[in-house]
């Protein structure tokens, strides 16, 4: 499961909904893998303002991944202008300006969409319940005594 989705998941127990320690869930014994995926700047731009940045930073730290910048990157910082040889120009003399993903966007993409929890568990900071992750799929079904 992608690190991005951890930012949208909290404890499934109704009792924990009002607690401010149930989010984010804490990954433990996590086996990480990188699954490459096409870059999608438009999606990053849309989703960035919806992230809980501080909580994301916390999870990144717990997983021992490179630290995030202290504040949310601006939308403008996701792309940069670059000069590129014009297409169908055999002389190579003409250049055009194109917009490409910036290093900020590439780093975020790597972290949020390509870094995945393959095995492990997600633990609620409020009730201590452990949700298992197997083959990249987390199980949030509550056992009989917690429903």
């Amino acid at each position: 499961m992608k690190i991005l989705t951890l930012n949208f998941l909290t404890c499934a127990r109704k009792l924990c909904k009002s607690s401010n320690t149930a989010f984010p869930l804490h990954p433990q014994d996590a086996e990480l893998e990188i699954v490459e995926q096409d870059m999608n700047v438009e999606f990053l731009r849309n989703i960035l303002p919806r992230l809980m940045w501080e909580e994301l930073s916390g999870v990144v730290g717990e997983l021992g991944l490179p630290a995030l910048p202290p504040t949310v990157p601006t939308l403008e910082s996701l792309t940069e202008k670059k000069l590129k040889a014009a297409e169908n120009d055999p002389t190579g003399m003409n250049v055009v300006e194109v917009e490409v993903p910036s290093q900020v966007a590439l780093d975020l993409h790597r972290l949020l969409l390509e870094t995945c929890v393959k095995e492990g568990k997600l633990v609620c900071g409020s009730c201590g319940h452990e949700y298992q992750v197997r083959e990249g799929i987390a199980n949030f079904l509550l056992p009989g005594h917690l429903v």
Partner: peptide, 17 residues
């Protein structure tokens, strides 16, 4: 590239933030 994954869960006890 468009698939973010699936989770096992139930709508009455959804873990979505």
């Amino acid at each position: 590239g468009n698939y973010l994954g699936g989770i096992v869960s139930d709508i009455t006890n959804s873990p979505l933030r």
